[in-house]
Design a protein around this nucleic acid. Structure first.
Lengths: 224, 224
DNA sequence: ATTCATATAGCCATTATTGGTGAGACACGG
DNA sequence: CCGTGTCTCACCAATAATGGCTATATGAAT
């Protein structure tokens, strides 16, 4: 079904000319359509939840609220929408902030049009388009724990409890029994957890959980 | 040979009265002598390498640096010295941390004097004195990790490859793509893996996978 | 008083996983 | 040559997990 559907792209970019060219590029390209254009983070925040695009191309240097903060607020509202940062500067700190906020890709504005389109397709298909230079920094950082624990700290106590059981491999209904709540409530908690951890499966969540748990604070394998 | 030599015991305990009673108990007991007494982890760290006792009785709840961390630093300096943790709480997490740090025994403060002396002799002779309740947890964990690595070795190369992808949270179809085989073949491999690992879910399998490969599979210093 | 976060719960639909069974190709050792 | 194990693929059925909604209650914060 998705093969025939166009990828709906929204643009957040304060520069009028660039916004126009991007919009045109996308509209004129096979398999894409431009779902919306936004000049500021504020208007993007207000309008994008209604637009529900597949992909957002987000400038970082916006007037007022910057693009990273915008992603922070936007991603929880649109968990399925992929976000690609789009900027002139290859700023390491911003890269990580943006990725931590839930962005999936990081492109430079000097990227040629065909590569840009490829990147949009990539991110739509679950990839993370970025330059190899950026990728290397990201990989290096992920080898250290840093990021995951910050995400884990955003979980409420109850959610952490559920995650704990998830990590032990319990079924939803077993978690429900162990915590004396309904199956559906477990389900609700898990949806929240996945959203906050930016994952889509149990194993991804458990991996973050284990990676964040420092080597010294190992969880016990068994209860006898 | 060892029958005539006294076992030299050092005490690390912040409580003055308890430190005194322990010291007295040891001094008055046949075959023991109290090599030194320390009020804090810091002073123990500074003085114990010079004392070189046979056994250290180490409180966990010390002011400042706790007993577990103290063991971490002390054990490399005194590899031949046996360390027994001594605490009021039977805290599972602390037990494992202490054992991982190099302690050999774990005693509760409520242990009667004669049993305490027996435990000190035990640990001096290569044993690991602990309550049966604690021992059971340790054994369970030991057996589990031991089995896990043995079980993992029974996997064929191809199965290990699949498990590797499983652990990363890939979907079956993603594994299929990554390995250039059919979805059903991935399915077949996974059935075999689960059978060999005696698990019924992905998370259980991944847990075994991680436990076997992680440093937590180190030999715990126990003989139960 | 009203917003906000949290915990709880339910319904519906789709996708993913698990389990049972069978089977062909191929290599390796007896 | 035969048996055994491995890798491959397939079909079927049942269960589990995921995602999108909505909704109520409660307490904390504004």
């Amino acid at each position: 079904m998705k093969t025939k559907m166009k990828i709906r792209v929204s643009i957040v970019e304060d520069n009028l000319r660039l916004r126009g060219s991007l919009s045109k590029l996308i509209e004129l390209s096979e398999g894409f359509e431009c779902a919306s254009r936004h000049e500021t983070a504020e208007s993007a925040l207000a309008e994008l939840p209604g637009v529900k695009p597949d992909v957002i191309l987000m400038d970082i240097n916006l007037p007022g609220k910057n693009g990273v903060d915008c992603v922070c607020e936007l991603k929880p509202l649109l968990p399925k929408t992929q976000i690609v940062m789009f900027t002139v500067y290859e700023n390491t700190e911003l890269i990580f902030k943006a990725l931590a906020a839930g962005a999936s890709g990081y492109l430079l504005k000097q990227t040629p049009p065909d590569e840009l389109l490829t990147a949009l397709r990539d991110v739509y298909n679950g990839g993370s388009p970025m330059t190899s230079h950026i990728a290397r920094k990201v990989v290096a950082s992920f080898l250290q724990t840093g990021n995951a624990s910050r995400e884990l700290e955003q979980l409420t106590p109850r959610e952490q409890e559920v995650l704990d059981h998830l990590a032990k491999g319990f079924l939803y209904k077993e978690i429900a029994d162990a915590m004396n709540i309904r199956f559906d409530t477990v389900h609700s908690h898990i949806r929240k957890i996945y959203e906050k951890l930016h994952v889509r499966t149990r194993t991804e969540a458990v991996n973050k959980f284990h990676r964040a748990g420092s080597p010294s604070s190992q969880k016990l394998p068994v209860e006898v």
